[in-house]
Design a protein around this nucleic acid. Sequence first.
DNA 1: TCCTTCTATCGTAAAACGACGATAAATTTA
DNA 2: TAAATTTATCGTCGTTTTACGATAGAAGGA
Lengths: 110, 110
Amino acid sequence: MSNTPVFPYTEKEEKLARYAKALSHPVRVYILQFLDSQQGCYVGNIVEELPMAQSSVSQHLKELKDAGLIQGTVTPPRVKYCIDRQNWEEARVMFAFFFGNIREEESCCD
Amino acid sequence: MSNTPVFPYTEKEEKLARYAKALSHPVRVYILQFLDSQQGCYVGNIVEELPMAQSSVSQHLKELKDAGLIQGTVTPPRVKYCIDRQNWEEARVMFAFFFGNIREEESCCD
DNA sequence: TCCTTCTATCGTAAAACGACGATAAATTTA
DNA sequence: TAAATTTATCGTCGTTTTACGATAGAAGGA
């Protein structure tokens, strides 16, 4: 007798939405670009770049980590963050597919 | 003497974040896929697909329109929505660039 | 041991989001 | 003109987001 509304979308759409949500704030977009342009860096390096409280940056990092787009390694007394290449690749493919980059067998050099 | 904090990101990051925000809800992802799979359709057709109030669907459509990803045409007594191909293409390129699909001159067939 | 450094977490407040029902607005149909 | 249809907007309510300062915790160095 449960009356849970049934949505027509699947976990795929939910996953894309989760990745999109992680990218839905310019500070997080910036942090990802910053990390992508290097092999990774410490929290302090990111905080230096941004005119906001350290706790706020930490919060954005947490969201990016929860979304799976970055990963942190504790190297006392610091924490090094870098892009999670596995999920980054997954997100890349999902967005490409969503926007129709991948239509079918697109032959190149035609 | 203004003390407005200066962020290191530009309008480009803000724009990507805006597009991402539009995609940050599974219902909106679904609506875009639905519209992308046709030439467009009426609000009623979308409402039929979703187990939620018509006003909620209308709200999501408004957000997608504000983000620039869809456009509406009034054909009384109905409104037809379709993908805004211009901005869709812009978003496609921006996400592709962000995720590194476009690195440099990638020669194909190598 | 004590202090410093670095980062995460907590508590809080303001704003934005997401859902709903009710209603308005515009046009077609009866 | 009256009624029905279709969609947008309004008001509301509960939840989530985003920012901050304060503080906790973990490790290294004095």
